[in-house]
């Protein structure tokens, strides 16, 4: 089932329609090319950057902090997401994952700290940085009175892409995400999983070098989830970088090369998955780090019926 689905992904499609991400930054949008040249002069391609030498982090989060009124949501988070990595961010509810990712993607202004995307400061040069990123925010609405096809097209045109390129990519993306049959349906009439998928398509349309996905698998059915995984894995294999937040430890352990455990607005552990889990499963390690897994006693009445 999963095998043929890898083909129509944006990463391995006909070169004219959608180039692999590492090339696309220098090929499709003139603005994007400027960006990748400006910061360091000789920016290495992500694939060569992640292989060896001094890799430039795809996303570098430095001391981000945010408080909402009395509550400190994020308390000095620093993370280095190496280019070409599949980075998982796990943490209990309210750990500050969404807030951190919002600040890293330019959606929420941090109180302290900054974030760099391939060396471009998100908060000093937001428009340049955002061209390098594809973002799937969690818990926001979509322009849902558009059809699915229109929404993805809109997302592409907003980024200044050429209409013909957008057109061919949209149909490939919809095919890859199994949304072809509903392409002309209004997004407001989509199910939760379809909505998630169309939002993902909107984030992929400009072949970004970094994908930031907040809870991409929430309410997505298993077939579509493995579909999406296939797309993301081949995207990473060809040099792109993905950072996902998730609750599902098992998924992160199988899918990701790196992981950060976040709780209470701080990073408890970060590194490659094998380093972090240190011999045990990620889930055990997570519970051990976060604490709170002690509530198996009490509730005796629940066993008496």
């Amino acid at each position: 089932m999963t095998e043929p689905r890898h083909e129509p992904t944006p990463t391995s499609a006909p070169p004219q329609a959608s180039a692999p991400p590492q090339a696309s930054a220098t090929q499709q949008a003139p603005e994007a090319r400027q960006v990748s040249q400006l910061p360091t002069g000789s920016l290495p391609l992500p694939s060569s950057g992640s292989a060896e030498g001094a890799p430039l982090a795809a996303l570098s989060i430095r001391g981000l902090a945010k408080r909402f009124g009395e509550k400190i949501a994020v308390d000095g988070v620093s993370l280095e997401v190496p280019a070409g990595s599949f980075y998982g961010m796990v943490g209990p509810n309210g750990a500050g994952k969404t807030t951190t990712l919002s600040m890293a993607t330019g959606l929420l202004r941090p109180d302290f700290g900054t974030a760099l995307v391939h060396g471009v400061d998100v908060w000093a040069r937001p428009l340049d940085a955002k061209k390098l990123m594809g973002v799937l925010p969690d818990g926001v609405r979509l322009f849902d009175r558009l059809t699915g096809e229109q929404l993805v097209t809109y997302s592409g045109l907003l980024r200044g892409m050429d209409r013909d390129v957008v057109g061919s990519r949209v149909s490939e993306l919809l095919a890859a995400l199994d949304l072809q049959a509903d392409a002309g349906t209004l997004v407001v009439d989509y199910s939760a999983g379809m909505t998630k998928k169309i939002a993902l398509a909107s984030a992929l349309i400009h072949a970004p070098r970094l994908l930031v996905l907040d809870e991409p698998f929430e309410s997505v059915d298993p077939v579509s989830a493995s579909n999406i995984r296939g797309i993301l894995e081949s995207y990473v294999a060809s040099g792109g970088t993905v950072i996902v937040s998730s609750h599902v430890m098992d998924l992160v352990q199988r899918m990701c090369s790196h992981v950060a455990v976040v709780a209470g607005g701080r990073v408890l552990a970060a590194g490659s998955v094998d380093e972090v889990r240190n011999g045990s499963t990620l889930e055990e390690r997570f519970v051990q780090l976060v604490g709170g897994g002690h509530r198996t006693e009490g509730l005796e009445w629940l066993r008496t019926f």
Partner: peptide, 23 residues
């Protein structure tokens, strides 16, 4: 629910200029 509809109709997105402001 509504019935599923095939795509292919971009409507105004195909008519107005393909620039950010046009979109």
């Amino acid at each position: 629910g509504g019935s599923a509809r095939k795509g292919g109709k971009l409507g105004l997105f195909a008519l107005l200029p393909g620039t950010p402001a046009g979109a």
